[in-house]
Simulated assay, not measured.
Amino acid sequence: MSSPWSSLRVSPATRKKLLWVLPSAVAVLTLVVFAARIFRDSATGQAFLTDFPGQSELPAGAPTGFPAWLNFQHFLNAFFIVLIVRTGWLVRTTQRPAAYWMRKNTGLIRTKKAPTKISIHLWLHLSLDALWTLNGVIFIVLLFITGQWMRLVPTTWAVFPNAVSSALQYASLNWPLENGWVNYNSLQQLAYFTIVFIAAPLAILTGLRMSAIWPQPSSTASKVFPLELARAIHFPVMLFFVLFVIMHVTLVLTTGALRNLNHMYATNSGESWLGFGIFAGTLMLTVAAWILAKPVFLQPLASLGGKVTRQ
């Protein structure tokens, strides 16, 4: 039986078109930098930067620094997102999967409807989605319990002109000062807010809509949220995550790598190599998981909850 995910595969013609993305992006970025530098050097640009330096004030009582639980959550989020993107891409591009998985219709998940056979890549994708969602729920709860939400959620309209100011500074290659241990610049704040409170829920909701656990097509929920709409949203959201990761890693490594990595992995604001060492270890773990995400290694794990077949 075909899956709603099968129609998301990328055709060879589309892949060829994607080859034009990189040179086109370079040309556009060159024009953006040129225009940003001209505006920044103008009297209007200088006045704008003076009025809006790129960072808005946080609410009173906002926490400083990053606790250990947030560092660990950051690693888990990065780990899951990388593997989710990899498996999602395999679902779209693999024409003939090496193995298939069908859940066992027993125990707590016994249903009248016959289980659907899916590719082992889709099984891993959905399994990772479930773990990422659980991790996200814990993350959101801890954000609001500890007050860390104040660093991510805009609480003043000044965040928007300051975000434009930050974007202008980045685009002109004269980047704003980084002090993420105390406060993100406004562009970072909006980006993190979008990832946590908009993109992630969209990815989860559209993924659920495309899965077999969604109510039948005749249900009210399915009519309100058509499958075609979920398909149209899910892939662009994945591309948004990829773009965010690329930009995030680039800025982390080019705006004080040791300090930033200590913020994200070692719960301190110093410039020791501790954060880099932890980051390198998590990177090797992620690479190992990337390599092992193959049917030959997945089959024993997948067999614990279902039947794995070659056809």
Rank of each mutant, 00 (worst) to 15 (best):
residue 272 S to D: 13
residue 154 P to D: 07
residue 178 E to F: 03
residue 295 P to H: 05
residue 222 S to D: 04
residue 214 W to E: 08
residue 21 V to H: 01
residue 177 L to M: 08
residue 111 T to G: 01
residue 127 S to Y: 06
residue 51 D to Y: 01
residue 103 R to C: 04
residue 66 F to H: 13
residue 111 T to F: 02
residue 301 L to I: 15
residue 150 M to H: 08
residue 241 F to R: 09
residue 183 N to L: 02
residue 43 A to Y: 01
residue 242 V to R: 02
residue 135 N to C: 09
residue 198 I to V: 15
residue 43 A to T: 14
residue 146 T to A: 06
residue 307 K to Q: 15
residue 15 R to C: 03
residue 132 W to A: 14
residue 73 Q to H: 15
residue 22 L to M: 15
residue 307 K to H: 12
residue 165 S to H: 04
residue 23 P to G: 12
residue 236 P to N: 08
residue 97 P to A: 11
residue 242 V to F: 05
residue 40 R to G: 07
residue 256 G to N: 08
residue 118 I to C: 00
residue 229 L to Q: 10
residue 284 M to K: 08
residue 97 P to M: 13
residue 98 A to T: 10
residue 7 S to K: 15
residue 87 T to L: 10
residue 5 W to E: 10
residue 113 K to Q: 13
residue 170 Y to T: 01
residue 298 L to C: 09
residue 230 A to K: 03
residue 175 W to K: 08
residue 147 G to H: 05
residue 272 S to I: 06
residue 262 N to E: 07
residue 7 S to D: 12
residue 60 A to C: 01
residue 4 P to W: 07
residue 169 Q to F: 05
residue 84 I to M: 15
residue 15 R to A: 10
residue 107 G to Y: 06
residue 22 L to K: 03
residue 121 H to N: 12
residue 77 N to Q: 15
residue 35 A to E: 02
residue 33 V to G: 01
residue 297 F to S: 14
residue 110 R to T: 13
residue 221 A to T: 04
residue 186 S to Y: 04
residue 214 W to I: 01
residue 185 N to K: 12
residue 249 V to P: 03
residue 21 V to N: 04
residue 213 I to D: 06
residue 302 A to S: 04
residue 194 T to S: 15
residue 223 K to C: 03
